[in-house]
Simulated scan of single mutants.
Amino acid sequence: MPVTQPLPRRLLSEFLGTALLLAVVVGSGIAASDLSPDDVGLQLLENSTATALGLAVLILVLGPVSGAHFNPIVTLADWYLSRRDPEGFSARHVAPYVAVQVAGAVAGTLLANAMFDVGTTFSEHERASGGHLVGEVVATAGLVLVIFSLMRSNRAPLAAPAVGAYIGAAYWFTSSTSFANPAVAVGRMFSDTFAGIAPSSVPAFVSAEIAGMVIGAVLVLALYPAIPVHHRHQGEGRA
């Protein structure tokens, strides 16, 4: 269904969705560390399962309001891939969307810290190795390809389960555990837990995610060059 909500309502949806996504990611990471302190593989399984399910639910609930981006990469890709469409995502909405996504990510991390009564400090978990950055490129390119291939092939109703399943799988097949989201990278700086990332690693992660977005967008245009006439009348909306 098309997104026709007023911009303030869309921004509230993006803030809320991104905040809840980070609460799920960070909160389940903290819970996993507490429940399985001696088994990192089990911790990752618990964290990835909660994230995949939580993300799918958030997309279903908030997609009709804002398009359920929850991710600056998705917002930028949506604008770029629909820029020639008169009903596509407006360039003037990119900055507000990104701003509330980043704010929501920080708020969600602080909420998770508060729920589990852990202090809010910068993470010391360094992640910016060469392999991690390659993993982020792959994870982000795949995410863009999944979302916009569904949109351009009139299968938008499948976005929620498909995106949730992809992110859940990418936790395991990418070395970076698939952040694929600059807002998530910024938010997770504020939790020195299983899910955290050191501030010094964030710029490299964001750069890798932008590179992945470009690759993903190129693949979408190569595989699905035409926007379907009726794509806006099916499933999850777009702003």
Rank of each mutant, 00 (worst) to 15 (best):
P182V: 10
A165V: 14
A162I: 04
A208D: 04
I197Q: 03
G187A: 07
D192E: 12
V214D: 00
A180P: 02
A180F: 06
P161L: 11
V202L: 07
P157Y: 05
I167A: 11
A169V: 15
R155M: 09
T193A: 09
P161E: 09
V163T: 14
G187Y: 04
V220F: 08
S175K: 11
N181F: 12
V214P: 08
L223V: 15
F194L: 15
R188L: 09
M151P: 00
M213E: 02
I215M: 14
A208N: 11
F190S: 13
V202H: 07
V220R: 00
P199N: 05
A185M: 11
G187T: 13
M151L: 08
A198V: 06
P157K: 03
A185H: 10
S200H: 08
S191H: 02
S176I: 11
G212C: 05
A156L: 05
A208K: 10
I215T: 14
V163Q: 01
G164F: 11
E209Q: 15
V184K: 14
T193P: 12
Y166M: 10
G212T: 10
I167H: 00
D192C: 10
V218G: 11
S176R: 09
A217N: 03
N181E: 03
A156C: 08
D192V: 12
S207T: 15
S178M: 14
N181P: 08
V186P: 00
R155V: 08
A170L: 02
P199T: 14
F179Y: 15
G168K: 14
G196N: 06
R188D: 02
A159T: 06
I197N: 04
F173G: 07
S200I: 13
S176H: 13
M213S: 09
S201C: 10
F194S: 00
P199R: 04
